[in-house]
Design a protein around this nucleic acid. Structure first.
Length: 256
DNA sequence: CTGAGCACCTGAGGGC
DNA sequence: TGCCCTCAGGTGCTCA
């Protein structure tokens, strides 16, 4: 416990955003005090009132390895800690970020200050979701994926939760009744819990910190299954595009 | 204000 | 083989 950062190597100056300047000098030889997250932002707190904000984007990964391991061209940031611990940030598409902010200003950081509730917390519930839906002009799937309302629900889990709820992704949010909102909330909590237990969902790149792929894709009911038979009723799964993202649904099981 | 569409970037996979 | 097109687990920005 209580490792300190001994060195940071930046192999390029920017990812999605410029990597905060002075990050190496500011954090060198500072002790790690906290590791937490908000939404999909990983927060690593240091003893000098600074916090690293790390996002993995679509293709980013963080993994522990050895300093000697051959560098990949997409190993962008290297972190060395006391005890020989070596952490790498690898991100092919560079949609991720590595930023630094004063810990006591974190909640006001532009990437964090507008975030909605955490989906696994108690305050993500039927009353809350219904209050969002009632006055919304959009469809339910983009609403669920809007981080201003609720964070952490990406394209896969939004689609899967709606399948489990029997609701089409195109359903206008304002036409969804409170009991259906209760159902959606419950299914979201269920699928996120199940996916975490299975180690996440892997299609191409995703691996965990031990570089092992997740297994949850084995349980997916609709995502990436266009034209394949519904696992419940055998009806071919449909694919549509909503706000630029692929949506998948079963026209038979999702009638609402 | 809201919601839709675009942008960022690289690489994999399919069709020809 | 190889080229060209399409698509991808996210999310901030711009424009209507």
């Amino acid at each position: 416990m209580g490792v300190s950062l001994t060195d940071i190597t930046l192999r390029r100056p920017n990812l999605r955003f410029p990597i905060t300047t002075g990050i190496g000098a500011t954090l060198k030889n500072k002790k790690v005090t906290t590791v937490s997250r908000r939404s999909k932002y990983l927060l690593i707190g240091f003893a000098n009132n600074k916090t690293l904000i790390i996002h993995l984007g679509m293709s980013g990964r963080l993994f522990f390895t050895t300093k000697e391991r051959t560098l990949d061209r997409h190993d962008h940031v290297l972190f060395d800690f006391t005890g020989g611990l070596h952490l790498r940030f690898r991100d092919v598409r560079r949609f991720g970020c590595v930023l630094m902010e004063d810990t006591n200003r974190l909640s006001r950081h532009p990437l964090l200050c507008h975030l909605g509730v955490e989906p696994l917390q108690q305050n993500f519930n039927a009353a809350y979701l219904w209050s969002l839906c009632k006055h919304s002009g959009t469809s339910i799937k983009p609403l669920l994926m809007n981080a201003k309302h609720v964070v952490g629900i990406g394209n896969i889990y939004a689609g899967e939760a709606l399948f489990m709820s029997g609701i089409r992704p195109t359903k206008k949010a304002r036409t969804i009744a409170k009991p259906a909102c209760a159902n959606i909330c419950a299914r979201i909590k269920e699928i996120l819990g199940a996916s975490i237990a299975a180690g996440g969902t892997s299609f191409r790149d995703y691996v965990d910190v031990d570089e092992k792929p997740g297994l949850h894709q084995l349980n997916l009911m609709v995502y990436n299954r266009a034209g394949k038979p519904c696992r419940i009723c055998n009806t071919p799964i449909k694919k549509i595009v909503q706000t630029g993202r692929s949506s998948f649904y079963c026209p038979q099981c999702q009638k609402l």
